[in-house]
Every structure is written in structure tokens, then in C-alpha cells.
């Protein structure tokens, strides 16, 4: 059996790749994909903790299922708003979002 640490390291890597992508990407869709990566890292974390350390209850798996559902809802709303930005400005480059500024 694969040790739990492998999965946890994978999840941590995905988390930090997602954080890095969130700050460095220049396209709204790419930023959205980065947050999805973070959410998937969380799902792995919960599932692994449940399966390896606390197999008597199913709390972690349930959390994973709900997190997947809510992540889908978040993505739907975010894409709808990004579409709205595209209709208003004709582009989804982040550098064009500069009407509201200090």
C-alpha cells in the first residue's frame, strides 16, 4: 500500500502550485483553474486523512463530496461573471481590469 505521506505531499504540491498560479497568471480563466487546483488538493487531503487515519467514520469522504459539489457551483458562477466581463470589455486579460483603482 502506498504510504499516506505520498498523497499528502502531492496535495501540498497541488495547493502551492495553485496559489502560485493564482498570483502569476494573467488570464481570468487560468486564475479560475488555479483555484480549482487548490480545491482538488483539499479533496485529496480529506479523503486520505479519512482512509488512512480515521477509517471508522466517513466524515472526510462526505466532506470531499460536498466540497466537489460546491466547487462546481463556484466555478459556474465565476464563469458566468467572467462571461459578463467579456461582454462588457471584449477581453478577459487581467491587466484590463483597471477601472476600479486607488
Amino acid at each position: 500500500m502506498i504510504p499516506a505521506e505520498y498523497y499528502l505531499v502531492l496535495a501540498a504540491l497541488m495547493f502551492f502550485i495553485g496559489v502560485f498560479g493564482f498570483f502569476t497568471r494573467r488570464n481570468l480563466l487560468a486564475v479560475l483553474i488555479s483555484t480549482e487546483l487548490i480545491l482538488n488538493a483539499i479533496d485529496i487531503n480529506f479523503a486520505v486523512f479519512n482512509a488512512y487515519y480515521y477509517p471508522e467514520h466517513l466524515e472526510g469522504f462526505f466532506f470531499t463530496m460536498f466540497a466537489i459539489g460546491i466547487a462546481a457551483a463556484e466555478t459556474a458562477v465565476a464563469i458566468a461573471i467572467i462571461l459578463n466581463v467579456y461582454r462588457n470589455m471584449g477581453t478577459i486579460r487581467l491587466k484590463n481590469l483597471k477601472k476600479l483603482k486607488f
Binding site: V31, E74, A78, I81, N84, N88, L97, L100
Partner: peptide, 11 residues
């Protein structure tokens, strides 16, 4: 403005 605020908030 509303669309820009929305995308900043949701992300």
C-alpha cells in the same frame, strides 16, 4: 464597473 467588481469578488 459591476462586472469588474463581481469578478474581483468571486475570484
Amino acid at each position: 464597473h459591476s462586472a469588474e467588481a463581481g469578478v474581483k469578488y468571486i475570484l
